[in-house]
Simulated assay, not measured.
Amino acid sequence: MKRIIVILLLVTMPQFSHSQDESAKKELTQLLNDFLEGAGKNDVEMHDRFWAEDLIYTSSSGERFGKKELMDGLRSSEEDSGPPISWSSEDVRVKVYGNMAVVAFRLVGTPEDGGEKNTYLNSGTFLKRNEEWKVVNWQATREKAE
């Protein structure tokens, strides 16, 4: 009987793990899309939800800072700092490793006044703590113009 239980576990575990990974990929992709929508509106609550307290953020300009500096900058940014920008993602890739995941994608910033798009290659490391995914490490790289 023990042998049958062990065999059943070995057969079903990969399927269970695969479905958990697929669920996490969907959850992370939705979180990314919700964040990008909120980022276009400077939604402080969405930023607070997305970034972990122990965040390490490396910007496309080569600056490194944490969540406190990011949130302080968001709160102090002028509302009229140029035309509003819509943010979207392309080529999203999600790899799940238990309670950790890596999300890589092309970030596209489209000015609402029809100006030139900006694109970045971004990657983030997410940890699931207390049943919630948050970013602990972020890397943004401005994509070279073709």
Score class of each variant (00 low, 15 high):
Gly114Glu: 01
Val6Tyr: 12
Met100Glu: 06
Glu22Arg: 10
Asn137Leu: 10
Lys25Arg: 12
Glu112Thr: 06
Arg64Phe: 11
Asp48Arg: 00
Arg3Ser: 14
Asp113Phe: 04
Leu55Ile: 03
Val94Asp: 05
Leu31Lys: 11
Asn122His: 14
Gly109Ala: 00
Gln30His: 13
Met13Gln: 13
Thr12Glu: 15
Leu10Asp: 13
Gln15Arg: 10
Val103Thr: 03
Asn118Phe: 09
Leu32Gln: 08
Gly40Thr: 01
Ile85Trp: 04
Val136His: 05
Leu127Asn: 03
Ser77Tyr: 04
Leu70Pro: 00
Gly62Ala: 08
Glu53Val: 01
Asp91Ser: 10
Lys25Met: 07
Tyr120Asp: 04
Lys95Cys: 00
Gly40Phe: 12
Ser81Cys: 11
Tyr57Val: 02
Gly62Thr: 03
Ala39Pro: 07
Gly98Cys: 10
Thr110Val: 06
His18Lys: 13
Thr29Tyr: 01
Met71Pro: 02
Ser77Phe: 09
Ser89Thr: 08
Pro83Phe: 04
Met13Glu: 14
Thr119Ser: 05
Pro83Trp: 08
Leu74Trp: 06
Thr12Cys: 13
Asp21Tyr: 00
Ser123Val: 00
Ile56Cys: 10
Ser89Trp: 00
Val94Asn: 03
Glu37Gln: 07
Glu116Ile: 13
Val11Ile: 15
Phe65Pro: 01
Met71Phe: 12
Arg49Pro: 02
Phe126Gly: 05
Leu55Lys: 04
Arg75Lys: 15
Leu32Thr: 07
Gly38Phe: 09
Leu8Gly: 11
Ser81His: 14
